[in-house]
Structures are given as structure tokens and as C-alpha cells.
Design a protein around this nucleic acid. Structure first.
Lengths: 350, 350
DNA sequence: CTGTTAGCGCCTTCAC
DNA sequence: GTGAAGGCGCTAACAG
């Protein structure tokens, strides 16, 4: 019989005790301990109590790796985001991780940095760690890697970029509705010349918002003539700043602008003030997302709230449906938005 | 001989191929495959190449759980933060995760939400997942759980709250220096009545900043007479807003204020503007941290930069030192700060 | 209701 | 330089 040398020097990671010692202590087999831990109804209540007693006494807890290996389930939920540094994501991560935790899952977060190579890496890590399900909350996705996940029957949930299918869910955000509400809000305030600070064109959600904006204006009989009224703000503060400056330089500058996200709107706020104009007296500004900061800009930003915590929770629910409930089909919950009126919008007055 | 039923229905998580199939394909034993994977110098170069070829052909990658189980190392680095939703942390998480990834570690992030119970839970999870090292970047720490990590020889690194020791490192931020630079900056601009928006008193780093402020003023012969010039902003935007209002209500209001963090400063900015005053013309404001947002407030915030990415990288380095280099002692790197002068400070003029 | 036992996939000593 | 084989800690048949 071979023994792993029982080192005198404590090796890193230390030595934890195993199910066997609990078994010995409780005078049962390891199988029974395992059952007791999993609250298997077949074990005698008294026996179970004895086992739990031993567990507590020994301060034992299971080795998840052994468990994963034997059971084939890792109890890890993957979450892939674009950039945790973008204020949109932390709440998403938090909400997801929390929901996961409640169901006994740890969350493995990966950031793609909007980069294809890192996206592959992220998915690779999910595969390696054998994530039981993966939420992909980014738009840059690598089809072949996704296929790999699909092949291995890993449930997935996307944010607005996929069709639901077997083990694949999709959260559908009703951007059009959000944009519509915002535009109608501006129109009802008397604005007629409304500009749009769009997001990156390769972002589907950004395209959807822009299209919705255009359509909405057109429906209201306010179709845009000057194409320069729609300009790219890149979904970032500096981009929004530059884009707004472009709008301000127009002969007929807008009396109100809608931004594709809050960061852009914040940049716009600054550009307007830098130009010596006031918000909302001279120009009204509406954002999109309602990041925490939006309530604290100057003036506080009127914006369309995208409920990130709800998105996170729904996303996990979709996965849990497949992971824990044994369903094989995907779903497509719709995520609503809500206009939050603060102080960056006001009635038009010439 | 018993077989695990080879299901017709693909079970979740799918079936991945194992080292054995690679071995077969490369006409070697599993041991050799294992060695090749780990670049063990004892394997013949040609053999190794054959193995790698097979690996690529089969698109094989190792099962980390089996690996962890057998090797006793999880290649997981734990990171415990207070609140990922606080703008201070995302960059920290990102920097840490990136550094970890480069060394082949995945990061397990846990959020304590400033709550003791959740802190225990976080540490418990680290233990369960057998993290090879844990960075604890929060101040609420549970001594007994920490002891548990210590017992199991899990390397740890703290941010400014612990003494270094065996397998324990500590990052020491030179807050005093940062505060000093900021105060001297204000003094050199001619300010004499300087207020301080402090942080929560139970936060060691907040206390250090306040003490440093007091001492610095006193050294400059500007010791504060009115205790109301130092008031708690709670390290949050709304707290900063309220705190600043209190300062503004003073008979002799300050001509400049230093905030214990940027969030507080942002709240102060708003309070000042709301009161009809201007920054920096009427009051200068200095923040602390230099969160991304600081560059985009109005006016852009002069602040003391706390290099979060550097902190993150150093933290991982400390762990790696124990995890990978086999060192047993801890270290205590000093993290410097740097004054970033933007537009929220200006010379005093009556 | 409980015990026995064969793996899960990999690493690692030992023998060749 | 390579192979054989035990064991990491746990789960899940299967047998009682």
C-alpha cells in the first residue's frame, strides 16, 4: 500500500478532513454521511442528526472538487460581461451573484473587454471550470465557442442577441418602448428638434435604440431631415462630449437630445455647459440606463431605467430552470423599461 | 464490473473526453500525457509533440476538478471586497482578475456588503472552493474565519488592516502622504479655512485620513478651532451632499474642503452649486481616490489618486509569492498616492 | 434504511 | 524516458 508522504512541513492548502472521518465519528458509512448532507429523505432522522452532529464537531465541510468530479456538476454559474469597469455591469454582477448564491451556486465572472480573443478565453474558462450554466451579457460573441458550450449541453442565457432554443434563453429588453417613452416625453414638453447621440454601430442594442428613435420621431411626424442630428457618442463620456459639440455646432441645433446611454448623456451635459448653455433651460437631455450616477449629475439626469438587478435575476432564473428544474427548453422573458424624470428636461421655450 | 449507465439522453454538462483518450491517440500512457501537459522536462521532445498534437486534434482540455482533487491545488484566487457596486472596486476586481489570469488562476469574487454574516459566508466559500490564496480588501473581517484560513495555510493579503506574518501580507497605503499633499496644495493656493468631509468612523482608512488631515493642518499652524469643520460624509454621494450643506451653514464657512473620498466630494460639489455658489471660484474641493468619474464631474475634480490597479496587482503578487514561489513569509508593499490637479481647486480670493 | 464498492479524471510515486 | 497503478474525496448504483 502506498502512502502520500505525510509531510512534516504543512503544505499550502493544508489538510482538511474528509467524509470518512465524519463517517467514523458518527458510526455510519460514508454513503450515509453523503446522504445526510444532501438531506436524502431515506436516512433515518436520528442517524442524520448523529451525522450532522459529527459534522459540526469536526467543523467539516465537503471538498467541492471531489464532489464536482463525482457528480459531474460544478455548482458554478458563469457570467460573461463586456467590461466590469463600465458602470452598467457591477450591479448586474452583484444581482446575478446574489441570485446564484441563494441557489447554491458560485459565480465565475469573466470580462471580455470588448475583445474577441478575450471572449474565447472567457468561454474556455467556463468550459474548463465546467460551469453548469453561463450567462452571456455581452454582444461580442464567438459563434464557435458558443457551439462548444451548446455541444456540452451547458445552458446559456443571452441579453438580447439570441433566439431562444434548447437550453438557450434570451432576455429581450424592450428598448423600443423605452426610447418611445423618452421621445414622447420630450415631444409633450414641446420639443420638435430632437437630436440623438447614438452608440457604437456594432452593438445591436445601440442600433435598436437608434432605429426606435428614428421611427418614433417619424411616427410623430417629426422625421429628421438633417442626418447630422443623429451622431455617434460611442457610449462613453468623452464620446458624448464630442458628439454633443457637433450638435451644438449645427446651424439649427436641437432643443433636446436623447442619448443612447447615460455615459453619453453625461458627456453631453458637460459639452452643453462648456458651451455656456444651460440644461434644461436651453437644451433638454435624456439618458438611457439609469446608472447610479444619473441621479447625481448636475442637473440630475432624466433617463430611461434599464432594471439591471432584474435583468440579473431573470438571467439566473433562466439558467436555474435548466440546471435545477430539469427543463430543456429556453425562455424569453421581456424586460421592461421605465422613464425616470429628473431635472435635465424642461418645456421648450424659445 | 459496474458501469455508469451511458445515457441515451445527453445529460447536462455533457461528456468531455479525458486524458485517457489523448493517451490512446498519442500511443502513450496517461502519465506521459500528464507530464507533457505540465511541460515536464523528462518527456522526450518528440513524444511531447505527439501528445500535444493529439490534444489539439481532440480539442481536449483537462478537467480542473479532477486536477484539483489530485493535486490539492485549485488554481483559484479569492478576492473579497466590500461592495462591487462601489465605484472603487470594479477596477480592483478587474486588475486582480487580470493579474491572476496571467498566472493561471481564476478569481472567485465575494462581496461582503459591509456585513459580518456575509463576510463569514464569503470566507466559507473560499474555504469550500479551496482557494489557493485570498485577498481580503475589506475592513469588516471575521477574526475566527481568518484564523480558519490561517490554519489551513491559505496565503492571505490585506489592504491596510493587518500585520504581515507567515503567509500573510499587507498592502500599506500611505494615506497620510496623500492627505498631506492635498492639504499643502490648498494651503499653497492661499486657503486658510479648510473643511474636511470625513468617512465612516469604523473604517480604519477613513480614520487615518482624518487624523492625517488634522495633523497636517496643525503642523501648518492652521489647527481647526471649530470642530464642526470636520463632519461625516459617510463616503457616499448623498452623505457628502448633506455634510457640505452643514459646512455651508456655518457662520464662517470654509473656502476649501477636502473629502475623504471622491463620492463624498461629488456630493459636496452638488451641495455647493445648489447653494448658488461656484466651484472653484467660491469654494475649492478636493476628493480622494480618483475614481474614473472624477475626471468628468463638473468641474473636473482635483483629487488624490489611489492607484487601484496597482493595488490589485500588488495584492496578487503577494499571494503568488506564497502560492507559486514557495515563500512562507509575508510582505508589506507600500502604495503611494498622487495628487491629480484638475479644475475644482483655485487660488483663494476674498 | 444502510453499507459496499466502483468509478469521476488526474497526478504521482515507484518500477522498469 | 515511459508505464502501471494507487489514491485524492465524494457520489451513486447495487445489494442487502
Amino acid at each position: 500500500m502506498k502512502h502520500r508522504s505525510s509531510l512534516a512541513i504543512p503544505r499550502l492548502g493544508g489538510t482538511s478532513m474528509s467524509i470518512r472521518e465524519v463517517a467514523k465519528r458518527a458510526n455510519v458509512s460514508t454513503a450515509t454521511v453523503s446522504r445526510a448532507i444532501h438531506h436524502d429523505s431515506r436516512v433515518n432522522a436520528e442517524t442524520a442528526e448523529r451525522v450532522w452532529h459529527a459534522i459540526r464537531e469536526l467543523n467539516y465541510y465537503p471538498n467541492v472538487h471531489a464532489r464536482s468530479l463525482a457528480s459531474g456538476r460544478s455548482h458554478i454559474a458563469g457570467l460573461i460581461v463586456s467590461d466590469i469597469t463600465n458602470p452598467f455591469f457591477p450591479e448586474l454582477v452583484q444581482g446575478f451573484a446574489e441570485a446564484a448564491l441563494e441557489s447554491g451556486y458560485d459565480t465565475l465572472v469573466a470580462s471580455t473587454n470588448y475583445d474577441a480573443a478575450r471572449t474565447s478565453l472567457a468561454i474556455r474558462r467556463m468550459l474548463e471550470r465546467k460551469a453548469d450554466g453561463v450567462a452571456i451579457m455581452t454582444s461580442e460573441m464567438d459563434e464557435s465557442l458558443i457551439a462548444e458550450l451548446k455541444n456540452r449541453n451547458v445552458p446559456m442565457v443571452f441579453l438580447d442577441v439570441a433566439e431562444p432554443g434548447r437550453l438557450i434563453s434570451n432576455l429581450r429588453v424592450d428598448y423600443a418602448d423605452g426610447v418611445g417613452t423618452a421621445v414622447r416625453h420630450l415631444i409633450s414638453l414641446g420639443h420638435r428638434r430632437i437630436g440623438f447621440l447614438s452608440g457604437p454601430d456594432n452593438l445591436k442594442s445601440a442600433r435598436v435604440r437608434r432605429e426606435a428613435f428614428l421611427e418614433c420621431l417619424s411616427n410623430a411626424g417629426l422625421a429628421i431631415e438633417d442626418p447630422r442630428m443623429v451622431t455617434d457618442g460611442g457610449h462613453r463620456i468623452d464620446g458624448g462630449f464630442d458628439a454633443m459639440q457637433r450638435l451644438l455646432a449645427l446651424d439649427e441645433r436641437p432643443t433636446a437630445v436623447l442619448a443612447s446611454n447615460d455615459l453619453t448623456a453625461i458627456g453631453a451635459l458637460r459639452a452643453i455647459r462648456t458651451a455656456g448653455l444651460r440644461v434644461p433651460e436651453d437644451i433638454s437631455v435624456v439618458g438611457f440606463d439609469d446608472i447610479q450616477l444619473a441621479a447625481f449629475t448636475d442637473p440630475p439626469l432624466t433617463t430611461v431605467r434599464l432594471p439591471r438587478t432584474e435583468i440579473a435575476e431573470r438571467a439566473f432564473e433562466c439558467l436555474a430552470r435548466n440546471m435545477d428544474l430539469g427543463q430543456e427548453d429556453g425562455t424569453e422573458p421581456v424586460i421592461g423599461t421605465k422613464l425616470v424624470v429628473r431635472a435635465s428636461t424642461a418645456p421648450y421655450h424659445r
